[in-house]
Nucleic acid binder design. Sequence first.
DNA 1: GTCTATAGCGGGATAGAC
DNA 2: GTCTATCCCGCTATAGAC
Lengths: 188, 188
Amino acid sequence: MNDSPRRKELIRLAAQLFVQEGFDRTTVRMLAQEMGIKSGSLFHHFRDKQEILAAVIEEGTQNALTLARAALDDAGSDPLSRLHVMARAHLDTLLTDRNAHVVALYEWRRLDDAARDHLTHLRDAYERLWNDVIDEAIEAGLVAGDRALVARFVLGALNWTVRWYDPDGPRSPEQLADELVNMLTRRS
Amino acid sequence: MNDSPRRKELIRLAAQLFVQEGFDRTTVRMLAQEMGIKSGSLFHHFRDKQEILAAVIEEGTQNALTLARAALDDAGSDPLSRLHVMARAHLDTLLTDRNAHVVALYEWRRLDDAARDHLTHLRDAYERLWNDVIDEAIEAGLVAGDRALVARFVLGALNWTVRWYDPDGPRSPEQLADELVNMLTRRS
DNA sequence: GTCTATAGCGGGATAGAC
DNA sequence: GTCTATCCCGCTATAGAC
């Protein structure tokens, strides 16, 4: 794969448009304009529109994975602390960056079969991190329920923030993450 | 508005396709074929494709609202019971019916401005029901946190089930709803 | 209320010059 | 690596016969 900074920048711009408009409604002409080139030139960098989507999603998932691993390394072994940093890292990739990871979550089903096959292991690796952290939290008595279900509910709550979060509102992504963890682990 | 059973049936079929393929990728030809007519005939029933989307979303939201109100009427005044029936009703419209309410949630932003204006009050009425139930739950000490945030997190967890729920899996929508409420209101 | 036929447009993608 | 020019296709929507 090509890893040039130029390509990285194009992927970043594509991610932004895919979030704003959705993959289907983003035309290659829109992408080209945002990149400052003509639509014909776009196909020098990518075989087709699908490949752009795959590149964005790979970038977004890889990034989330890297950030989560770094956060867990810093977090030590306390289950509550690990839950906190995972939630913060997740919302950071979704709400601060506001880019590739959102596309990975919301446009996954637009991938063709080949791309899905290639990217599934990446997504699974990220989900495994979450499952482990949830497991530890359940064992420590911080939260109750079935591991797989708790993970899906928590990720659902986090992923849905994309739909309503206002960056100009009163709360930072970090605060949001902390409030979710508090809701899960504390009684009033 | 036209309320004929014929129109209702067309809306039902459209909802199914919009869920399967997404609004943008559903063509009027696909819609017509599913309805057993030719694409030209479709425009005798709807002005344009947008109007079909608006009709589906109105149907889905109205239905969710009606179901939730009925459920709350049966639930009495116990806050935990009210939370349970709301979660069950919500997942029922999303996972059992698998239709119009999913479209309302996932294709909302594809509505044009006029349709959005017209439908906002319906959606708000439904969200108000949720906010009230969450308020009562917080006051009763069942769950901790800011009202608006808790509501959004809970709805996020529920809405995201559409992405992973397997109707052939081990759990019914009702069980799912109950497990979520348990996670929120109990410690292990 | 449904049909056939088609207008009119905008989409993804290609070719070849520079 | 970018340009211009353009092909070809499928989409939404319309017109008029039945």
